[in-house]
Structures are given as structure tokens and as C-alpha cells.
Design a binder for these strands. Structure first.
Length: 856
DNA sequence: GAGTTTGAAACT
DNA sequence: CAGTTTCAAACTC
């Protein structure tokens, strides 16, 4: 009987499986036949739980905690699970089962805790798993749906079975699998869906039956549980990458090397992979993300409270959205720095904390990786990071050496940031010991994780000297700062300090790098790839803008007319070149304007806009999207690459990510590079969100649908315009980047893609800006935003509108920079966008404002 | 890892 | 606003 089930795994498995179950479950069978009451009495506690325990995503370290924790999440989980459909779960379950067995075996060998489990059963389970491994993946695929019942999951979560669950789950999973095989074989190779359903129906029964197993094998040590959980999570998350990475990790992990399931696991992973794709395709990725996030939060028992709360509360959505990017990226921090619930919620700090979770570097990583996600699985990247983190953590949890754990984390992140390919990641993940890389990056401002970190000694991280503070994020463990006050504990102080600084310089926390979002849906191809510039420009004297001393260079942007650098040799674009470009742009714009002269119609405006963009395009050669380039060395590469890409600015940003392929192949995209940009992006997004919008809005940026601006009210069009144009630009561009992760495609495709119109407008309008090189009114934007988040007001105050009226050509700032001339082009841009999407978004206001301005 | 260089931020 | 000082990152050895 032990033998039979396994070998026959294919289709014969039915008989064998049934036999197997029968043998062990005679009593169970009877129970099965018996009335439901008896059933419940006997098995109830473990029934569903056991099964789901396997999922255990939460507390990697402390299973019990996990279970106990948030009932809150249960609901979500349920929804999520259901939404996801059976496939995802099935894959997970299956893996868990398999894995659990293997792991259990491995662990069990060294531990007697397993003794409780009847040897025969154990053997069977193991055997089963083995056989399964040999079995066809396809079979697994069919099996994937087996455990999909969300109810069970929920129950499992809610259940307080604790540690035992996981073990039980593993066993039960195996049993279940067997059963499922049986069922499948019975039904034949018919429709998978059908099979799935069938299996699902039986799943409950199976669970109950399994319970017997579970009960018997309840006692397994926490570590085992942890491990199971860990690797289950990734599966559950369904990220292809994750699975692969994890798989490798497991295989490589010393603790797990014994596990026989490595290879098997791979297969399983592949299977799950399929399911995951399906899910994502269904547009459920969001859900998945959410789910993943939630779990992640829960994982950290210590810090779990806030997270849980967030998830559970109405803020959940907000948080989730933010956390999607941030949290996932820097999990370790999340626990501590996720004080979203803090009093300052909605303020910069609040967001900061969020971002803190995702250290800037992370963001960079995200940006880079996201593209991949788009290509394949959107949500994957995020999940991947956190899962990896979790996995490693869990694995190492047993390891007393804390340091190791940290290192591991870093490494995993590092890997991600480096965009190591799935294949290439293996090494990285092996690393438990691989301090070199870390150390290597130690000197860098961003740690291997890509997390921004500082080394402040005298400023207590409360001055802009501190990168963390400047980015609006809290310092975290990776920071080597001394006497740091930029921590959640001192949120008040931080806030006050920030206010002071802002009082001095409204733009202090505004994004330094502005990406002219020339990207227009229609005109994407016409836009310049590397239009991003440093707001204030650099002031390099000796570095020639060829070193990171130069902020422009550091941000991978070219110098602009706003720079006061001497002997600029910025590989991303020399100041001189920029000036030339501007000139050209202006001239072309003039021409176009002349052609249009006299026409106020929107249509004309559109044309003009187009022409302007074309002009931009013309510039592109001059200023290739260097952002993309990692560093000076790679700048050349980047340029070349950039040439292949559409010139739109958004694209530039995304390029990082989109270039992921390139990066991978050529190993380029440096995490550091990405970090920088990401940091900026984060900064922008953060800043915008902080100033303009509530937390939700932040995400909204990425999702054009709901717009914060609408909230602000349409009091004044002009103001709206200004607001929109100024801040949003960066926001948009960055937002777009992010969207790449989450499916920015929508955004671009969206009828009213704010990107172009807004971005352009931004430049043009901003042109008035004082010194701002790009005509981006740094000051304006921040002020406005700062003022109250009601940009309109600020706009009024600044009322750049009139100034804007002047045609951009006059000004030297090519992109809309010219304050004087900006108006014209700016107007046009605005108008252009107006027609497309009036009612949908806040943009409308801005647009409307523009109109008014024009009228005026 | 220590020391130097650099340029932004802060200060006057 | 300009000049100076302070600071921390970037860089070099």
C-alpha cells in the first residue's frame, strides 16, 4: 500500500491513492461515512485548519502568533483567495504538501518531535511526495486547484491551532493530493476546471480525513513550521520569480540542502508559476499584491500590530497600495517604520514612514524590476522581494546569529536590485555568507538592499545633509548614523524640523530631479528620452559633473542651463548641450506657433503641442536618456540603448525598468543607479503625496482614476492647473514608473493620460520659474503643495498663470522651461489634454484652469 | 578603514 | 544674495 500510490501517480494514482488513503484512513473512512456530527466532533478542530496551516504565511518566526493574530486578515484572505481562484492556492498547497514533507523529513531526522507521527504514515507521505516529484508536472497542475477553497483557508487562519497546523497541513496536503489524484483519474483528463471543482468539493472532506493524519503528526517543532510557511508563502504569492528564487534558495540553503524536495520543489514551482500567470492575467494581481502585503505585515509578529491594524482598517486600501511598493521592498523595515497609524498620518512623515519601509534603494529596485513584472507578472517583483526576505529570515530564524539574518536580507535585496535574473540569482541566494558584496556597498549611500542609508554624525539626521531625512524617510537599521533623531520614535521632532526647513526652503523636500513628462500618449515617440534634470542644477567646480559629487550626475540626469557647474562633462548631458537643445526647441516651437497663429481652438493647441513634442524629439539625440545609464561608464551604453526606446520621458523612467532585460543581459542596471533614480522617484511621489494628497492619493497618482486633486476642489482653474502641472509632472512621471509595476499600462492607455499633457504643461508652465533650469518651478510646486495640499490655493498665490502666457520660445529653457514662453506651449498642452479627458480626473480641473488662464 | 575631496546645506 | 562654514557623501589610497 505504501508503494502503490506513488508510482501510479499519473492517472492510475486514483486507485493507488485511494488505496493509500483507505489503508490509513479506515477509521476516517468510517467517519466520512458517518454522520456529519461525528465528523465534526472528531475532526473539526483540525479539519480545515490542518489543511491550511500549510499556507501559513504569516509569522514566519512565530506560527502561533500568526494564527492568533489578526482575524482581520482573515476576511481579506478569504476574499483574496477566492478571487485568486483555486489555481493559486492549489499550487501553494501542493507545494506545501510536498515541501512540508520533505522538510519535515529533513527536520524530522534530526528531531524526534516527529515521532508522534506514525512511521507508516510518514513514510507514505514522503513516499508520496517523492513519487509525485517524479510524476508529471501536469498532474500537479490539475491538482493545483484542489485546495482552493478559501473557506478552509480562512478557517485555517482563524483557527488557533498554531504550530501543529503546519505539520498537519503538510500531511493533509499530501493526502489531499492523493485524493485529488484519485479524483482526477476517475474523471479522466476532462476539463481541468471540472476537475478542480470536483476536487474542491472533496477538499473539505479530504481535509477532514486528513485530520487524522494531522492529529497524529501534530507535534513538529516550530522551525519546521517556519520553514514550511516560508516556502509556502512564496508559492502562494505566485510569483514566478519568487518561486524560482526561493527554490534556488532552498536548494542552496544549508539548512535545507538535505531536503529531498528541492528538485521536486522546482517542478512544483513551475506549476505554481502557471497558476500565477493565470491569476495575473485575470487582473487579479492587485489582489495578489494585497494579499502578499498583508501577509508580509503579518509576518512580523513584533511589529505586526500596526500593520494588521492598517490592513484591517479602512485605511487598509491606502496602506496596501503604498505598501505594495514600499513595504514589499524593504520588509525588514516595514515592521518598525510603518507607523502609518501615527498621528501625522497623511503628513509627510506618515508617507515617509511608508516609504521608509521601502528604502529608496528599494524603490529603485522596484523601478527596475517592475518592467519585468509587466512583461510577465506584474506583482511579482514586489512579492519576490518580500518573499525572499521572509524566506531567508525564516530559514535563518533558527540561526541564533542575528547578524547573519540581516546580511541575508540585504543580500536578497541586493540581488533583486541588481536585477539578477532568475537564473543568476542562485548564487546570490546561496549567500548566507557573502559579506563581500555588502561590504562592497557599504561605502555607498545605499546599502545592498538598495535602501537608502545615511552615516550622519552631527546632524542627527535632521538636516538635509542626511539623505534619509532629505528623502523624507526615517533612518533605519542599515543607517550608521549617530544620535539619529530621524526615527519614528521622534516623529514629532522630525516633523517640526522638516517644517522649519521647509519654511526656509519650500522645495527642500521636493524632488530634486524633475522629469519633464513630455510623454504623451500620442506623441510618445516624439518626446525626448532624457529630459529629466536637476531642479536647481549643480554647482560643481572640480568634479566636472563626472562624479557623484554632482547631483545631476548622481541622479543620472544631464546638466541643464540651471546648473552653475564649471567644465561640465556630464555624461548624461552637458550643460552646453542642454542649452543648445533648448535653443533648438524654442526655435522650432516658434515656427509651430507661427503656423498656428491666430487659432485658439483646442485643435490648434493640440497641433502645437505635437509640434513642440516633435521638437523635443529633435533634441533627443542631444540628450540621450542617460538616466538610464548606470554611471559614466555605462552612459555610453545607455545612450545606445536609449536610442532604441521611445523618447518619452516616462519611458525614460521606465526605461530603467524596461531596460531590465537589457540590464540583465548586460548586467548593467546597477542597483545603485536604479536606487538613485528610484530615490528620486520616491521622493517625488512621496513629496507629492505628502503635500498634495493624502496617502491614498499617492497611489492615485499611479492610478489615474481617482484623483486627489478633485478633492482639492475646483475652486480655481488656474490654480488647479498650476498645481497639476507643476507637481504632478514629476509625480506623473514617477507614477508612471510605478505603474509599470502595477500595470501602468492602463495609465498610458487611459484616454486622458495625464502624463503628457500634464508633464508638458508642467514644463511649460513652470518655465516662469525663477532659476529653475527647466522652467520647472520648483518653488511653486512645493509651496503650493505645502500650503495646504490644496494646490489651487497655492496656485493662486503664485498665480504663474499670467506669466505662463508668454510663449516658451523666449525662454531659454527648452522644455517648457522658459517661463515667459512657457505659457503658450503650456496652454496648448493643457488644452490638448483637456479634450481628451475632461470629466474623469482631477486633471480636468487643471485643464479647466488652463482654459481659464487662456481666456484671461 | 582612514584620510581626502567635493559640493550641497546651513549659516552669517 | 554672497561668502563662509559645516556636513556627509564620494572618492582615493
Amino acid at each position: 500500500m505504501m508503494n502503490s500510490p506513488i508510482p501510479s501517480n499519473d492517472n492510475n494514482g486514483s486507485s493507488s491513492a485511494s488505496a493509500l488513503n483507505d489503508n490509513h484512513n479506515d477509521s476516517e473512512q468510517s467517519s466520512k461515512d458517518s454522520p456529519f456530527d461525528r465528523y465534526v466532533n472528531t475532526l473539526s478542530p483540525l479539519i480545515t485548519k490542518a489543511h491550511h496551516a500549510a499556507q501559513g504565511f504569516l509569522g514566519l518566526n512565530s506560527p502561533p502568533l500568526v494564527f492568533k493574530s489578526p482575524c482581520i486578515s482573515h476576511r481579506e484572505t478569504r476574499l483574496m483567495e477566492r478571487t485568486q481562484g483555486t489555481q493559486s492556492l492549489s499550487g501553494e498547497i501542493y507545494q506545501s504538501a510536498n515541501r512540508g514533507n520533505s522538510l519535515g523529513k529533513a527536520l524530522g531526522d534530526s528531531r524526534k518531535s516527529n515521532s508522534q507521527q506514525p512511521p507508516s504514515e510518514r513514510f507514505i507521505a514522503e513516499k508520496d511526495s517523492d513519487s509525485r516529484n517524479d510524476a508529471n508536472t501536469q498532474n500537479y497542475g490539475s491538482l493545483l486547484s484542489i485546495d482552493a477553497d478559501s473557506e478552509d483557508i480562512d478557517q485555517a487562519y482563524s483557527a488557533d491551532q498554531g504550530v501543529q497546523q503546519s505539520t498537519d497541513a503538510a500531511v493533509s496536503s499530501l493526502n489531499e493530493l492523493n485524493r485529488s489524484n484519485k479524483n482526477i483519474s476517475k474523471e479522466g483528463n476532462g476539463d481541468k476546471n471540472k476537475e478542480s471543482l470536483h476536487l474542491s468539493e472533496d477538499s473539505n472532506k479530504d481535509h477532514q480525513e486528513k485530520t487524522a493524519y494531522g492529529q497524529e503528526s501534530k507535534k513538529i517543532e516550530g522551525e519546521k513550521n517556519d520553514i514550511q510557511w516560508d516556502y509556502q508563502d512564496p508559492t502562494k504569492l505566485k510569483s514566478n520569480l519568487v518561486s524560482s528564487v526561493i527554490d534556488k534558495q532552498y536548494c542552496n540553503d544549508p539548512h535545507l540542502q538535505d531536503v529531498q524536495g528541492c528538485e521536486d520543489y522546482n517542478e512544483m514551482v513551475s506549476t505554481s508559476h502557471v497558476s500565477a500567470e493565470n491569476i495575473s492575467q485575470d487582473g487579479l494581481e492587485a489582489t495578489l499584491k494585497h494579499h502578499g502585503i498583508r501577509r508580509r505585515c503579518l509576518q512580523f509578529g513584533e511589529a505586526a500590530k500596526p500593520h494588521v491594524k492598517l490592513d484591517a482598517t479602512s485605511n487598509e486600501m491606502k496602506m496596501v497600495k503604498l505598501s505594495e511598493h514600499a513595504t514589499s521592498l524593504c520588509p525588514q523595515r516595514g515592521s518598525r517604520d510603518f507607523p502609518l497609524t501615527g498621528p501625522k498620518a497623511g503628513t509627510a512623515l506618515h508617507l515617509n514612514s511608508v516609504i521608509n519601509v521601502m528604502p529608496t534603494g528599494e524603490a529603485a529596485t522596484t523601478g527596475v524590476r517592475l518592467p519585468e513584472g509587466l512583461q510577465g507578472m506584474k506583482s511579482t517583483p514586489l512579492i519576490r522581494l518580500q518573499r525572499m526576505d521572509n524566506v531567508k529570515r525564516s530559514i535563518l530564524s533558527s540561526n541564533p546569529d542575528r547578524q547573519t539574518l540581516v546580511d541575508t536580507r540585504n543580500e536578497s535585496h541586493e540581488v533583486d536590485s541588481s536585477l539578477s535574473t532568475d537564473a543568476g540569482n542562485s548564487e546570490d541566494f546561496n549567500e548566507p555568507p557573502n559579506p563581500r558584496k555588502k561590504k562592497k556597498k557599504t561605502s555607498v549611500n545605499a546599502d545592498s538592499n538598495g535602501c537608502k542609508r545615511c552615516n550622519c554624525k552631527k546632524t542627527k539626521c535632521l538636516k538635509l545633509y542626511c539623505d534619509c531625512f532629505a528623502l523624507g524617510i526615517y533612518c533605519t537599521d542599515p543607517c550608521a548614523c549617530q544620535g539619529c533623531l530621524n526615527r519614528p520614535e521622534y516623529a514629532e521632532t522630525v516633523s517640526e524640523t522638516k517644517q522649519q526647513i521647509e519654511a526656509r526652503n519650500s522645495n527642500a523636500f521636493a524632488p530634486k530631479i524633475i522629469k519633464p513628462n513630455t510623454d504623451n500618449m500620442e506623441d510618445k515617440n516624439l518626446t525626448t528620452p532624457s529630459s529629466a534634470r536637476h531642479k536647481r542644477g549643480c554647482n560643481c567646480k572640480r568634479s566636472k559633473c563626472q562624479k557623484k559629487y554632482c547631483e545631476c550626475y548622481q541622479a543620472n540626469v544631464g546638466c541643464s542651463s540651471g546648473c552653475r557647474c564649471e567644465g561640465c562633462m556630464n555624461v548624461n548631458g552637458k550643460k552646453e548641450d542642454y542649452a543648445a537643445m533648448e535653443r533648438r526647441t524654442l526655435s522650432k516651437e516658434r515656427v509651430s506657433n507661427i503656423v498656428e497663429t491666430g487659432s485658439n481652438s483646442t485643435f490648434h493647441n493640440k497641433l502645437e503641442t505635437v509640434s513642440v513634442k516633435k521638437n523635443h524629439d529633435a533634441f533627443s539625440p542631444i540628450t540621450p536618456s542617460l538616466q538610464f545609464s548606470d554611471q559614466g561608464k555605462e552612459a555610453a551604453k545607455s545612450r545606445v540603448i536609449s536610442g532604441n526606446y521611445p523618447p518619452c520621458p516616462e519611458f525614460n523612467v521606465s526605461m530603467i525598468s524596461s531596460s531590465s532585460n537589457y540590464t540583465r543581459s548586460s548586467e548593467n542596471l546597477h542597483s545603485s543607479h536604479a536606487l538613485l533614480e528610484t530615490n528620486e522617484m520616491l521622493r517625488t511621489a512621496l513629496y507629492d503625496s505628502q503635500n498634495n494628497c493624502n496617502n491614498v492619493n499617492m497611489m492615485d497618482q499611479f492610478t489615474p482614476v481617482s484623483h486627489p486633486r478633485s478633492l482639492s476642489g475646483a475652486s480655481s482653474f488656474s490654480s488647479g492647473t498650476n498645481e497639476w502641472t507643476n507637481i504632478p509632472q514629476s509625480r506623473l512621471s514617477y507614477g508612471s514608473i510605478r505603474q509599470l509595476h502595477g500595470g501602468s499600462l492602463r495609465w498610458r492607455n487611459s484616454p486622458f493620460t495625464p502624463s503628457t499633457g500634464v508633464g508638458e504643461a508642467h514644463y511649460l508652465e513652470c518655465s516662469e520659474s525663477d532659476n529653475t533650469p527647466f522652467g520647472i518651478q520648483e518653488n511653486e510646486t512645493p509651496d503650493i503643495l505645502r500650503e495646504g495640499s490644496t494646490p489651487m490655493r497655492s496656485v493662486k498665490v503664485n498665480s504663474p498663470t499670467q506669466k505662463r502666457v508668454s510663449p516658451p520660445q523666449r525662454r531659454y529653457h527648452g522644455f517648457g522651461s522658459s517661463s515667459s514662453g512657457g505659457l503658450r506651449s503650456g496652454r496648448k498642452f493643457i488644452l490638448k489634454s483637456v479634450p481628451t479627458f475632461p470629466p474623469l480626473s482631477p486633471c480636468v480641473d487643471s485643464k479647466g484652469n488652463d482654459k481659464e488662464d487662456l481666456a484671461q
